[in-house]
Design a protein around this nucleic acid. Structure first.
Lengths: 331, 331
DNA sequence: GATCATGAAGAGAGCGCTCCCTCCAAAAGG
DNA sequence: CCTTTTGGAGGGAGCGCTCTCTTCATGATC
């Protein structure tokens, strides 16, 4: 037994397919009595339009690809960014009647898959997340003509509108705060330098220190807890006298906290720590983490809205959201 | 300008649509020379089959709905379970050539959306995540005839195969460990009782204590950090002399750790803490958290495989995965 | 009463693909 | 040499829907 079709509903209601189509799509040009008749038939048969047939003719799919650059299996599995951003964006898209197709793009294989998927017309739009600099995906997708937005400014300049937080301003906030607290030797744990957020935060750290004539001390991580811990150990090695560290995200700050504990340093007495993002976990560290709040959820929502606007052919442009320093006990 | 169709490829290669279709779908009954001819035309035109047209006739979509019961906006945004499970399952589905459609099912509205989406034939199968007891969704979806699996045993008995970890065995492990450590007054922070995992963990806690003639002391949380902290305060209020607490997941254990710190109790000296799940964060608490490792990623992979098997009409049955106690410094 | 404007409903082509059926040529068998 | 078998290729119906075009009824206008 097959699912009922438009035609079945039409027959049952004693009207034409066209009329049923009009009712189902909410067009105004149908008399109220006929509309009621059709609705009754629809309900009786539990009719639902076949999405494949519909999108075959409309050339729309009412779905959006959310593309996450996935690390190789096993790495960074519980990234709070993923959860927050995907959820917030999904809610926004669902509210607009768009379905979210989630795709992981880590390997070259999966990037090919993604490109094919998008080029085949599976989705009406694409939202990119956490793109790395070397990634050829944004350009490849832009070439398909499908509207794209990037959550986070792409590292290489490519003609894709984006939404980001004020990484430069936020990082400057963090460093100035440490300076205000009287810290002299402020180190930084940077994110991977092929991501614009990492570049900007590092750049602002350097610039701010330079203003006061101080030297920068940097170790590079990859935004994971473990890399934060490793970077911290290295920094302690490089400059045992450091009295503050600014981590480019909270996850690395958490790793740094653990490394400092292991190394016998007290926070904030010996070393002050400031993170970035203000994830929920920052409230639960010991001591609670001073951090720069980046409005991750808002950023995701803004990205989604940007894309939705693009789909309606409204002129849209990139957005920078403000950040805020949240002072807790780690600094 | 439109994307090239099968017909365009056929014309260019000088063969029939049927032949192109055969080549594109990898059928064996095409001569090697003709196949090469067609492939050349495909590449030259950058042809990609239109998925809507294809699924209109095949009645397949090659996609899977992953349905997450989403809490109201703003709550538990950075659930590590979400990230781990969604990613692991996605990878598995993608490897099998299935696309993942992510749907949030929190409100009654969204549940209706989900039901319609599935009933309309948008997907070939459904994977349910973290279903609560009262949720009518599993039954409603089962009625559509689309294959379903549940990640986590559904609370109410419904004819849906599932994959879970050994909640009873795992919780018993945790409690026995605390008893072995000489703890006398062992409290528990339970998860929401409309979820089977919470029920089973609580049940095993009670049963294990009963064996040794001890009283159980329980507070109920909802698997979030904040609820863990609140539950911990309540437990301290109820029984200031408690010397151990078993939290039904690590997030709540982390909340409990913070509450204990605020209340001036030392961990593990005054109060031992054991969690459940072994999320990555458990390694970074102070002190590092003793916990029951539930193989979340494996469970997600197993759920995905179960569904993929169902789609191939292979007979499949529910799975229980073993757990393991990871002893760290909090107990 | 004849003409025209208006709005509601029906007819049917066509979206791009798959898959059943038919056809044909070459190989195998008598 | 003719018939039968076989495998590779083409023809074309039809999947379920939308949307343009057409038709028809109604009421307004002269």
């Amino acid at each position: 037994m097959r699912r009922p079709t438009l035609e079945a509903v039409a027959t049952r209601a004693g009207v034409s397919k066209s009329t049923v189509s009009r009712v189902v799509n909410g067009e105004a040009t149908v008399g109220p009595d006929i509309r009621a008749l059709v609705m009754r038939a629809v309900n009786e048969l539990d009719y639902m339009p076949n999405p494949a047939a519909r999108s075959l003719v409309t050339q729309r799919t009412d779905s959006i690809a959310v593309i996450v650059s996935d690390p190789p299996a096993g790495l960074v599995s519980d990234d709070p960014m993923f959860s927050t951003v995907v959820r917030a964006a999904s809610r926004e898209f669902e509210a607009a009647g768009k379905q979210v197709a989630l795709m992981l793009a880590g390997t070259a294989d999966s990037r090919l898959r993604v490109r094919q998927f998008v080029a085949a017309g599976h989705v009406d739009g694409v939202m990119l997340m956490s793109m790395h600099g070397a990634d050829p995906l944004p350009a490849a997708l832009a070439a398909t003509g499908v509207p794209i937005v990037s959550h986070g400014r792409p590292a290489v300049s490519v003609d894709v509108p984006w939404v980001d937080n004020d990484n430069i301003g936020g990082a400057a906030l963090a460093v100035r705060h440490l300076l205000d607290r009287g810290r002299r030797r402020i180190a930084m744990i940077s994110g991977p330098l092929d991501m614009s957020a990492a570049q900007d935060r590092l750049g602002a750290y350097r610039a701010t220190l330079r203003e006061t004539g101080r030297r920068s001390i940097v170790a590079i991580g990859d935004f994971t807890r473990i890399s934060g811990a490793e970077a911290m150990f290295q920094l302690l090695d490089d400059d045992p006298a450091l009295d503050a560290v600014f981590a480019a995200n909270d996850l690395m700050a958490i790793g740094a906290l653990r490394a400092l504990r292991r190394a016998g340093r007290r926070v904030p007495d010996d070393v002050a720590v400031v993170g970035y993002d203000d994830i929920e976990a920052a409230l639960y560290t010991d001591p609670p983490l001073t951090t720069v709040r980046s409005p991750m959820g808002d950023q995701a929502v803004a990205s989604a809205r940007l894309l939705l606007g693009l789909l309606e052919n409204r002129p849209m442009s990139s957005v920078v959201l403000p950040t805020e320093l949240i002072v807790r006990d780690s600094s």
